[in-house]
Amino acid sequence: MQYSESRTRNLRWLTYASIGLFIISFWMIFAYVGPERTQGEVQRIFYTHLGAFFASFVLFVVALIAGIQYLRTRHEKWDDLGLSAIELGLIFSLINIVTGAIWARPIWNTWWTWDPRLTTVAIMWLAYAAYLMLRAGIEDPNRRRRFAAVYSILAFSSVFLTIVIIRVRPDTIHPVVAGPTSTSEGIEGDFAMSDRITTTLLFTIFTYVVISITLLWYRIRLENRTKLIQARKMKLLLNA
């Protein structure tokens, strides 16, 4: 592969850093913080739940920027970046949704409820899944890249809605962790954050964001490699 030495070295260091951070956050979640008083052990899910959410959020923002940049510059690398980011973002938001459902079972006494927050997250997931459907449905590569960029910009409206809805809808039962909340009544599963909880939470979020960026890097390299293989195949077929 024709990657520069320093970049490959950086990627390797980032990989080690991700593994290290993951081990430390694992230790923090299970040993450093104690179980929460009103929720018990299941509260430990919450760190991964939020970490995965922030990772997917960062990835979808990256996809939005990649979409805008592709339309501006028409460089293929932005399309690769957008595709990679959305593919990974889908998995991270799936982790977010599933862990949320498992947390909700003992706390809200149901796996799923059509709460505004849950609804918008589900719709966000569907919007990005539709992005992959759109890519699969269009044959002309230039048009596929263009439409994908346009749709990744449109789909971001659902991410925006997910962030905003919890601030404007007073009837959500989902706890608001970061930022102002419209009301404190009616939120089930909220809890006071001790210093240790806050530290662990921030550390886990940081860890997941770093992991997602590392994986994104590998995923882009994979995309490049696949394209190179495709080109070589075409070459061989033409020569044959």
Binding site: M133, L134, G137, Y151, L154, S158, L161
Partner: peptide
């Protein structure tokens, strides 16, 4: 105007449209 260029456009349109139209 995007989905019209796709294969199976009748199926793709609601899938693409409904998530975006939700707000």
């Amino acid at each position: 105007s995007m989905s019209v260029h796709a294969r199976a456009r009748e199926m793709l349109l609601p899938i693409l449209l409904l998530p975006v139209i939700l707000p």
